[in-house]
Amino acid sequence: MRCALMSNGKIRGIKITGDFFMHPEERIVDLEQRLIGVPLRKKEIEKIVTDFFEEVVVVGASAKDFVSLILKTRGRGA
Protein backbone atom coordinates (compact mmCIF):
# COMPACT_ATOMS: atom_id res chain seq x y z
CA MET A 1 0.00 0.00 0.00
CA ARG A 2 1.10 3.51 -0.68
CA CYS A 3 -0.11 6.95 0.22
CA ALA A 4 0.54 10.19 -1.61
CA LEU A 5 0.03 13.10 0.71
CA MET A 6 0.15 16.88 0.65
CA SER A 7 0.02 18.53 4.01
CA ASN A 8 0.81 21.62 6.00
CA GLY A 9 0.10 19.99 9.33
CA LYS A 10 -3.35 19.36 7.99
CA ILE A 11 -4.00 17.04 5.05
CA ARG A 12 -4.42 19.05 1.86
CA GLY A 13 -4.58 16.17 -0.60
CA ILE A 14 -4.37 12.42 -0.27
CA LYS A 15 -4.48 9.34 -2.47
CA ILE A 16 -4.29 5.82 -1.06
CA THR A 17 -3.29 3.11 -3.51
CA GLY A 18 -2.51 -0.58 -3.32
CA ASP A 19 -3.65 -4.12 -3.90
CA PHE A 20 -6.35 -4.30 -1.22
CA PHE A 21 -10.09 -4.89 -1.77
CA MET A 22 -12.88 -2.52 -0.74
CA HIS A 23 -16.59 -2.98 -1.39
CA PRO A 24 -17.99 -0.76 -2.84
CA GLU A 25 -14.74 0.28 -4.52
CA GLU A 26 -15.66 3.87 -5.37
CA ARG A 27 -16.08 4.71 -1.68
CA ILE A 28 -12.29 5.11 -1.38
CA VAL A 29 -12.82 8.64 -2.71
CA ASP A 30 -15.17 9.40 0.21
CA LEU A 31 -12.47 8.42 2.66
CA GLU A 32 -9.93 10.61 0.91
CA GLN A 33 -12.32 13.57 0.88
CA ARG A 34 -13.13 13.16 4.58
CA LEU A 35 -9.44 13.26 5.39
CA ILE A 36 -8.89 16.64 3.73
CA GLY A 37 -8.42 19.41 6.27
CA VAL A 38 -7.76 16.92 9.05
CA PRO A 39 -4.64 17.39 11.23
CA LEU A 40 -1.99 14.72 10.72
CA ARG A 41 -2.47 13.36 14.20
CA LYS A 42 -3.24 9.79 15.21
CA LYS A 43 -6.42 10.54 17.14
CA GLU A 44 -8.13 12.49 14.36
CA ILE A 45 -7.05 10.18 11.53
CA GLU A 46 -8.00 7.08 13.50
CA LYS A 47 -11.53 8.39 14.14
CA ILE A 48 -12.20 9.08 10.48
CA VAL A 49 -10.72 5.83 9.21
CA THR A 50 -12.44 3.70 11.86
CA ASP A 51 -15.83 5.31 11.20
CA PHE A 52 -15.32 4.80 7.47
CA PHE A 53 -14.47 1.14 7.95
CA GLU A 54 -17.88 0.68 9.58
CA GLU A 55 -19.48 1.66 6.26
CA VAL A 56 -17.52 -0.51 3.82
CA VAL A 57 -16.03 -3.98 3.65
CA VAL A 58 -12.25 -3.98 3.30
CA VAL A 59 -10.26 -7.15 2.69
CA GLY A 60 -6.50 -7.33 2.66
CA ALA A 61 -5.87 -4.30 4.89
CA SER A 62 -7.13 -3.15 8.28
CA ALA A 63 -8.17 0.28 9.56
CA LYS A 64 -4.95 0.21 11.55
CA ASP A 65 -2.94 -0.36 8.35
CA PHE A 66 -4.58 2.68 6.75
CA VAL A 67 -3.92 4.86 9.81
CA SER A 68 -0.28 3.90 10.15
CA LEU A 69 0.29 4.28 6.41
CA ILE A 70 -1.10 7.82 6.47
CA LEU A 71 0.87 8.80 9.58
CA LYS A 72 4.15 7.45 8.30
CA THR A 73 3.82 9.18 4.95
CA ARG A 74 5.79 12.37 4.82
CA GLY A 75 3.78 15.20 3.42
CA ARG A 76 5.22 17.31 0.64
CA GLY A 77 4.80 20.48 2.68
CA ALA A 78 2.50 23.43 2.15
Binding site: R2, T17, D19, M22, E25
Partner: peptide, 9 residues
Protein backbone atom coordinates in the same frame (compact mmCIF):
# COMPACT_ATOMS: atom_id res chain seq x y z
CA UNK B 1 -4.41 -3.36 -12.68
CA UNK B 2 -6.42 -3.56 -9.46
CA UNK B 3 -8.99 -0.80 -8.93
CA UNK B 4 -6.95 0.88 -6.20
CA UNK B 5 -3.51 0.55 -7.70
CA UNK B 6 -1.44 3.41 -9.01
CA UNK B 7 -0.82 3.07 -12.74
CA UNK B 8 2.45 4.92 -12.46
CA UNK B 9 3.73 2.91 -9.50
Amino acid sequence: LGYFQSLED
